[in-house]
Amino acid sequence: MTAGMLHGSFLSVMQAQTEADFRQEVIRFAQDLGFAYVSAMTVIDQSLTHSDFFTVDNTPQAYKDGFQNNQIWRRDPVMQHCKRGTVPILWDQATYVRNGVEELWEEQAAFGYRTGIALAMHLPQGRHFTFGVDRDQALPKEPAALTRIVADIQLFAVHAQEAALRLFVAPNAVALERPKLTPRELEALRWTMEGKTAWEVGTILGISERTAVLHLQNAMHKLEATNKHQAVLKALRLGLIH
């Protein structure tokens, strides 16, 4: 396993054994990245009208009521973005102004929630995971620095949602049968685990980049994964690769 794919904080959150461990690792990651606040929420749809929520955060006690208010969520542009899609959102005051709800930003800004980054993962069987980091300082203006932060958050979220499902959802609800992956699909996952791109995987295996991508996509589908990193983690957990 290379440091590029699973450095310390990613491994630590995935190995969390209790909710307290999970909370500690999530907060540590956010603060090491320069964000005072963090929220990791697992949502399990039980029916069209009922969902179970499991939230880990370090929201100030004085702002708890507003932070957990479902009525506010329905108007909050960041929450609505995460509900609809998976692309990370980088938000600040302008986000709320554009959506005509600047008063929501002003209320949370008083508690240090002035800007942040949030994303969501929508998984099979009505499972969802949202992850957001927030602070009172502006985000970096340098594109390279901002891209690096977003990439770190995306990778951490993949590992965090694996741990969250294991900790907060009944084991039989997340249990997976060992799917049958072809040798090529397994090889593609192994090299992806080593940090190789699809082009590099194709070169190593003597196939085209397009074929390498196809093998990865097939593996993702069989493992019910939303991206190649999650597919690698599930394959590891199931003992399909080592």
Rank of each mutant, 00 (worst) to 15 (best):
K141P: 02
Q80L: 15
E106N: 14
P171S: 03
L123T: 02
Q154P: 00
V133I: 02
G126E: 02
M121A: 08
I149F: 04
H122D: 03
M79F: 14
F131H: 05
N172F: 12
A94R: 13
A163F: 04
P171K: 02
H128V: 04
L165Y: 12
G85H: 08
E107F: 11
V87G: 06
Y113I: 02
V150T: 08
Q137F: 09
F129K: 02
I153K: 00
R166I: 09
W105Y: 11
L165F: 10
P124T: 09
A118N: 02
K141N: 11
L165M: 12
L90F: 04
L104V: 07
V158M: 00
A120F: 03
F111Y: 15
P124I: 01
T95W: 07
D92F: 01
H122V: 05
L119V: 05
D134W: 11
K141T: 15
H81F: 04
Q108E: 15
H128I: 04
N99L: 08
D134T: 10
L155R: 15
D92P: 07
R166Q: 14
L104M: 10
T115K: 00
R114A: 13
H122M: 03
P171T: 00
H159N: 13
L139E: 06
P171F: 01
P88E: 01
G132V: 00
L104D: 07
A120Q: 03
A173Y: 14
L123E: 07
L146P: 08
M79A: 13
R127N: 05
R114C: 09
L119M: 13
A157N: 01
G116Y: 04
V97D: 08
Q137M: 12
E103N: 14
P143H: 00
A157G: 01
L155C: 12
E106V: 08
A138N: 10
L167K: 08
V87H: 14
K83Q: 12
Q125I: 04
R98S: 15
A173S: 09
R166F: 08
A145H: 09
A120R: 07
A144V: 13
A109Q: 07
R127E: 07
V158T: 11
L119E: 06
I117E: 07
Q161S: 05
Q137A: 10
Q161F: 06
W105E: 07
Y96A: 09
P143S: 01
Q125V: 03
A151R: 13
M79R: 13
A151K: 14
T130P: 01
R127I: 10
N99R: 13
P88Q: 02
A109C: 09
M79H: 15
F131C: 06
F111A: 14
F131T: 03
G132M: 04
T115H: 05
I153M: 05
W105N: 06
G126D: 03
C82N: 12
A163Q: 08
P140S: 04
R84T: 12
F168S: 06
E107R: 08
A170L: 11
P171M: 00
Q161K: 07
I153T: 00
V133F: 00
E102I: 13
E162A: 06
H128S: 14
